[in-house]
Design a protein around this nucleic acid. Structure first.
Lengths: 154, 154
DNA sequence: TCAACGGGTGGACGAGATCGACCAGACCAT
DNA sequence: ATGGTCTGGTCGATCTCGTCCACCCGTTGA
């Protein structure tokens, strides 16, 4: 993970479809060696995939909400996690340090779908309470910040 | 935005580097017509970009936190938003319906950086209070859900 | 009926991806 | 020093892919 790798990662994070030839031009290497580096970055789990970014509203997922979950004492977190994962509308799921020990980011087409979803989450065993907040607008999302310089080892 | 477009979008959301030739095979068209469709999807703002997905921890952004912002009455939201946007560590920013009218998702290398960041956000004019929650683990993030079927028009 | 049009196909050509062979420097044990 | 090995690069050949253009075919509307 040298400086060239960082540049490659930064380029791919802002445009995931950049060709190897183009990357090669940017970093001053040849295409095969860049391809080799990218393959290694993927193998080492640094690059875990590529995604098209889609405007949620225009594809009919106009409503975004954040749902906090407060568990009860008997909560089986493996089970909760598994059941949450089975709900496709939950796009992100964070395990938090706090009373609300999960936060979900969900997207649905209509308010009725959100209501259904909240009931479904609330019905999961171990979930004592949920707290939902509607997002009025997404200012921005998943903006890639540059890879920080490698910190010196111990 | 017919069924074929939906398939293309779903494929590109799960693998943004799928070639046109491969997409063509999947949807049963030829490469040029698929390319044409993708270009139109991009022009119409349905596909807004492509990103490599990177494992934050391995690139040195091991700490993820959620910061809620409670504004004071004098808050100038355009100004707040602009100042927040200038902070690179803020990867996402949602405007919420609630007391905490913004929620930020931030990533930093070390705890010290988070402290600095919280102070910086707290110092923005119009920000009365912040509430930070550390994420202990990210169960999953930005999982693409399939494009919902086009709802019937009015 | 005919022209225009949107959306598709097929072919041609240049650019890109990919593979193998080869090369240079770093490192290590002899 | 010397030779072996390893890593990471280049070069060149080949095959695929992207991209442009001409053409086709069903629909629409005058």
């Amino acid at each position: 993970m040298d400086e060239i790798d960082q540049t490659i990662v930064n380029l791919l994070r802002t445009d995931g479809r950049t060709s190897y030839a183009e990357l090669a031009r940017r970093v001053g290497l040849t295409a095969p060696s860049v391809q080799d580096r990218v393959t290694k970055l993927e193998k080492n789990g640094i690059i875990t995939g590529y995604k098209a970014v889609v405007d949620s509203e225009t594809i009919g997922l106009g409503i975004t909400a954040l749902i906090g979950i407060i568990p009860d004492n008997s909560a089986d977190h493996l089970d909760i996690c598994e059941r949450l994962r089975a709900i496709p509308q939950i796009e992100s799921c964070y395990f938090l340090a706090g009373v609300e020990c999960y936060q979900l980011k969900v997207r649905v087409p209509k308010m009725g779908d959100l209501e259904t979803l909240i009931h479904r989450v609330g019905a999961i065993p171990g979930v004592a309470q949920t707290r939902t907040t509607i997002t009025l607008s997404t200012k921005w999302e998943d903006r890639p910040q540059p890879v920080p310089p490698e910190q010196a080892g111990p």
